[in-house]
């Protein structure tokens, strides 16, 4: 799992690449909690290069989103491949995470709230 961070205004765009399973999700957890620790509150995660996610990956997103909530922060996701989106749907995660088609939409979703 490769993780690239880029600040765009008040939002940190986090581009993910690779498989997100129990063996790799620890690296993402470290990265997201590190960003929150450093004071970042708006995280936009690109799933454009993620071909696979398991419940271990979902768990990390849930942990980070739960930590951000009382801090008035938010995680937005975008560019999910169909098979990845299906896992989000089966897990009921599409109702707790804003999911956009592209980065622009994800960045705009922070302005609304």
């Amino acid at each position: 799992m490769d993780i690239a961070e880029q600040k765009k205004g008040s939002v940190v765009v986090v581009a993910l690449k690779g498989r997100l399973d129990a063996a790799t999700s620890g690296k993402l957890e470290e990265a997201l909690l590190g960003l929150i620790e450093r004071g970042e509150r708006k995280l936009a995660l690109s799933f454009h290069q993620v071909d696979y996610i398991s419940s271990a990956g979902l768990r990390v997103l849930l942990v980070a989103a739960k930590r951000l909530k009382p801090l008035n922060g938010k995680i937005a996701l975008y560019s999910l491949k169909p098979q990845v989106r299906e896992v989000f749907e089966i897990a009921g995660f599409t109702t707790i995470f804003p999911i956009s088609a592209a980065e622009d939409d994800a960045l705009r979703s922070f302005q609304k709230s």
């Binding site: 398991s54 419940s55 271990a56 979902l58 768990r59 849930l62 942990v63 739960k66 896992v87 089966i90 897990a91 707790i96």
Partner: peptide, 10 residues
């Protein structure tokens, strides 16, 4: 939301 039980559900 619980952090457990998702894998078996999937």
């Amino acid at each position: 939301r619980s952090e457990g039980g998702l894998g078996i559900h999937l």
